[in-house]
Structure formats: C-alpha cells, structure tokens
Design a protein around this nucleic acid. Structure first.
Lengths: 137, 137
DNA sequence: ATTGACCTTAGATCTTAGTCTAGGGTTTAT
DNA sequence: ATAAACCCTAGACTAAGATCTAAGGTCAAT
C-alpha cells in the first residue's frame, strides 16, 4: 500500500492533485489507515495511470470521468461508446488546431512585414496593421 | 460621441466587456457626461479596434497592454520592440500547435485502432491503451 | 521525548476573460 | 408623467485545474 506522498512521487504529480481528484470524484483510495491516512493499492495506481494517460492525450477531467465510467462497466458498454469520446475529442483538437494555424499565419504575416529595426515605430507596419479593423472570422 | 452600448454594438462586444477593459487599464472613455455616462470619441473607437484586432490574432489582454504602450509612444519606441512582441507570440503559438499536433496524432491512433462497434468494450483497444502508462513527453 | 517529515481538513487563492446581480439613477418616447 | 430602455457602481460568480494556507494530528528516528 502507498501513502499519498508515495503514490504522488511514483506518478510525478503532487499529493494536492490526488486530493483534488478525490474531491472531484475521479479517484478514491481503497482504504484509510487508523489515523485517517489514504492508502492506495496497486490497482489504485493502475486506475491513476489510466487517468494520467487520458490527461496526456488531451482529455479534460470531466471527459476522463466519462472514460472511467466506461472502463468500470466494460461489459455493459461498447467499443462504440469509447470511440465516440475519442472522436469527439479529436474533433475538438482539430478545431483548436485550425484556430491556432489561423493565428500563426496572421502573426507570421505581421512579423514578415516588419523590418524589426531600431528606428522609431512611427511607421511600423505591425502597429498599422493592428490599427486596421478586421472582419470577424 | 458614443455611449457605451452604442460603441459595444458597433464593435460586437458587450458593454460589460468595455467596463472590464476600463477596470483593467486597457481602455478608457475620453469623457463622461454630466450624469456620469461614458462618452467615447471616434479616436476611442480606433483604439478599441486596435485592441480587438490584437485580440483576434491571439494576444492576451496583458500583451495588448504592452502593444498599446508602444503604440502610444511610437516615436520613442522601435519597430524592433513591436516585432519582438509579435515574434514572442508566434513562438508561443507554434509551441501550442506542436502540442496539439501531438494530441491529434495520439487520438488518431486510438481511434484508428478501435473497431467502434457495438460489441462490449471488454477488449476495447482504446481502454487498453489508456490503461498503459506512457512516458511523460 | 522531541524533532522533522509526513499526513488530515476546510477553505482561500490563482489565472483569464469576462458575465451577472443588486440597487439605483437617467433619458426618451408617448 | 410614466414606462422602457439605457446607464452607473461594487462586488460576486463562472470555467479548469490545480496550488496554497492554517491549524492541527501522526510516525520514525534519535
């Protein structure tokens, strides 16, 4: 059994984060010691790793709760359920990517048009471009 | 002169947002009416458009404050100053893009490996993959 | 037996960019 | 002269995901 600090160290997160996950219904310890210390089993650690892996591919904690509920009741849920969550997330990520690519291209244009020199900014193309209203995208 | 609601409508933002910008030192009205109403000039509207255009290319309000301070003191600031802010932002955006591309590829792999069918999720490749710890990137 | 490292809780704080509410004053049109 | 539509302020609230604080209890080693 691991105490909270031990599990936190093993998984490279803080004990505070573990308490936070617990408060938000994501991740409970299997037991408490006589003194009230949280005690985590290897199975708990596996569950935590599921959570952290999910986080690392971009799922929010709320979405991870959905994934966990499928995982906890595998036999009554379908592959389609799991894939739907992944595909929804993928669509979100693609949307953000498109927005960031738009920003990247705007910023690149601004940068390319500006000499960047040490003369005064009186006629700076960047400041001029920013002063020009743009249509909402 | 525009009242706050008029300017807000013209610029497609809310009056609350204008008050919020003012509270945060980004954008003040030139005058107040006898009754205390904010009154904005065309020059104010131009400043607001600078802010909104900056926002639309991804600058945070804090960064916009920096841009504004250059814009307000053009003759004592350089093109280099302005370009630096743009290039810093561009670097941030590229970083986020790289991270999102990493997420996209992970999610795409998860999605591709899963049949997505209506059989039970007992052997779902997505759930199995998420249960497998990943090295921190 | 006491120090230091660890654990407990509840609740406050942070960031960003607003939005909303309460309680009140003003302007405009009828 | 009264109702609708607008404006004012201060301050609370939101999302997300933690992080930090205060005040205290526990455990291991010296």
């Amino acid at each position: 059994m691991f105490k909270i600090g031990e599990l936190a160290d093993l998984c490279n997160i803080s004990a505070d984060t573990l308490r936070f996950y617990e408060k938000n219904g994501l991740f409970q310890a299997s037991k408490r010691s006589g003194a009230g210390y949280r005690l985590y089993t290897q199975a708990d650690k596996n569950r935590l790793e599921f959570i952290l892996t999910s986080k690392s591919v971009g799922f929010s904690l709320k979405e991870i709760a959905d994934l966990l509920s499928i995982n906890l009741d595998k036999s009554n849920r379908t592959c389609g359920d799991a894939k739907q969550l992944v595909d929804d997330k993928l669509a979100q990520v693609k949307e953000k990517l498109a927005e960031l690519e738009r920003l990247e291209s705007s910023l690149q244009s601004l940068s390319d048009a500006c000499c960047g020199g040490s003369e005064s900014a009186l006629h700076c193309t960047i400041l001029e471009a920013l002063a020009t209203p743009k249509k909402p995208h």
